[in-house]
Design a binder for these strands. Structure first.
Lengths: 136, 136
DNA sequence: TTGTACTGTAATAACATTAATTACAGAATG
DNA sequence: CATTCTGTAATTAATGTTATTACAGTACAA
């Protein structure tokens, strides 16, 4: 998770939370993030498939939250953008003839599950409403 | 942290923990990880600068732990390889003329510090000895 | 004292991932 | 029915990561 998807999604959702139901265009959102609008539309497409936002096509279209900001948790956003394990994985398959190489992936997976658990737990305690309130 | 440095460093240290003081060469370690020995030497160089391993040059050289495996915590390893924030950063500087764009980096930093705190805390409770014992 | 087996490190190339851009079909509105 | 928007695919550009090559320097052992 070394990429910008979490902060971008959180930025989008914060803008939507503060827009209080009015539709925001991908161009407007991209202007705040300072990135390409296609990236925003892609990210919104992902958030939509996770049930966090709704969007409307056509003239005067745009996006809104699919539910109250108090019901969207940072753990939901994390889950929506998560694509690789938190602490990284080696690209190569370790040597199966070595006691460590043989089992390290299993033990890494277990460790990662444990560690990611505490992280998700923490994010579970913070709502989008909590986060976006800070901008008032 | 989408790269393989944490798992590679942990793999190296696990091998060293199990070698119980005898020197392991970068070639041997690379053979277990299945990566290039230069990568191993670079990572060992980093771990050495963090005080986790010692190494000896020349014939019959190699690396060992700089202290007992029970005194090396996974949080030390995390700190040694950490190079970017856990949940990623957008590459672009957000629009300062937008209330959200103006302050989001500050609020993201605070959030990341909080979240990373619980992760480090978790890793602090697990030693290299605990981890490497699993391979017995 | 010299060959051998290592480390340390720099420089470069190969590869993988991420973001930006271009392009365009389709939807909703006025 | 022109306009303004979304949705999405395809491509290119930028960046980040790992592998490779090269070689100087160190320690050992015959």
């Amino acid at each position: 998770m070394n990429n910008g998807r979490f902060p971008i999604s959180l930025h989008i959702l914060t803008l939507l939370a503060r827009a209080e139901g009015s539709l925001l265009s991908s161009d407007f959102i991209a202007g705040s993030i300072n990135c390409n609008p296609v990236i925003v539309r892609k990210e919104i497409s992902n958030l939509r498939s996770c049930g966090l936002v709704e969007s409307k096509e056509g003239k005067n279209g745009g996006a809104t939250l699919a539910k109250p900001a108090g019901n969207i948790l940072l753990s939901d956003i994390y889950a929506a953008v998560r694509q690789s394990s938190l602490l990284g994985n080696s690209r190569n398959t370790p040597n199966p003839d070595c006691a460590v190489g043989r089992d390290i992936n299993t033990h890494l997976e277990n460790l990662y599950a444990e560690v990611e658990g505490v992280l998700v737990n923490k994010l579970h305690g913070i709502s989008l409403a909590d986060f976006s309130r800070q901008f008032d």
